[in-house]
Amino acid sequence: MIHSLLARGSSIFRSSAMQRVLAFGGLIVLFVGFSLASPNFFNFENIKGILLATAVNGVLALGSTFVIITAGIDLSVGTVMTFSAVMTGVFITFWHLPVPLGVLAGLSAGALCGFLNGTMVSRMRLPPFVATLGMLYATKGLSLVISGLKPIYFTDTPEFATISMGSILGMIIPGFDIPNAVLILFGAAILANLILTKTVIGRYTFAIGSNEEATRLSGVNVNAWKTVIYTMCGIFAGLGGVLMGARLNSAQPALGAGYELDAIAAAVIGGTSLKGGEGTIVGTIIGAFVISTLANGLRILSVPQEWQIVVTGAILVMAVYMDNLRRRKE
């Protein structure tokens, strides 16, 4: 059935773009809907809250997008985030090292976990689901062990919290105090977009997800590049850990599990295909905002948190279903 295969193929490029438009449309619908439903939704303070709430999940989702485009999955980004926050806490609070070193420790911890994931997936040929599930458990346990089951507070180093909660923008434009975490999210997103669309890493991310064997036979060292991609995902998780720690002014060792699913959901709502080969950073960022806007709006409408989760699930399934429907039509 080569004909139908090709016919389907012709929609591939458009479909990713379409899903993004769809997700963006959905985001606008959410904004308009919540604004009409509640006077407390559309104001600067609340929008700021949504932006801040998106920062951590957004950063995690950036890394996940790369991994998912390779037709892989990383279930460990949530707990790797926590592990990184804990390592930052160890450096800054336990060992009294300077804050920049602590940040570096967090990023490195993420990178190391990502590197191990990548090694397991590529050289040891473990299915990504299994390898990163193992990493999920390992980092979850290690965070508890290292922290001694207790949160590590950054109270001695107030400058650490400003990484997330300070506002450089507010200093430049008085009153426009968008938190730094949001700036970092957008900075990271721009960087991720550059890597995905303009560099060899990005090119091979798509190539591996689209046809791994062909990529290998083209002389590309698929194992090495997969390791690079998972390591990068780990670094984004590490950045998420730093942002999370700075936002809570503490490393909470029991937090983290479940964040990986939000990250995956953001990527998928934004049009990244779990089958690999398709996805965009813009889409993922929109997806992350859809999730946090939904949570925020429902909370303002006094919908209990449990129900917010149910609605998020329904939206996720609906987004993918609509994408499927449209593809079938084409």
């Binding site: 798509f206 046809n211 062909a214």
Partner: peptide, 30 residues
């Protein structure tokens, strides 16, 4: 190959030069 070894989500040119992509002056960029 009999089962064609191309990467469907990349362009014709990207497929031809995969593994030896020409770079810009900043070596990092394609």
């Amino acid at each position: 190959h009999q089962e064609l070894n191309l990467i469907p989500h990349l362009t014709v040119a990207q497929n031809i030069f995969i593994g030896r992509e020409p770079r810009q002056k900043i070596r990092f960029l394609l």
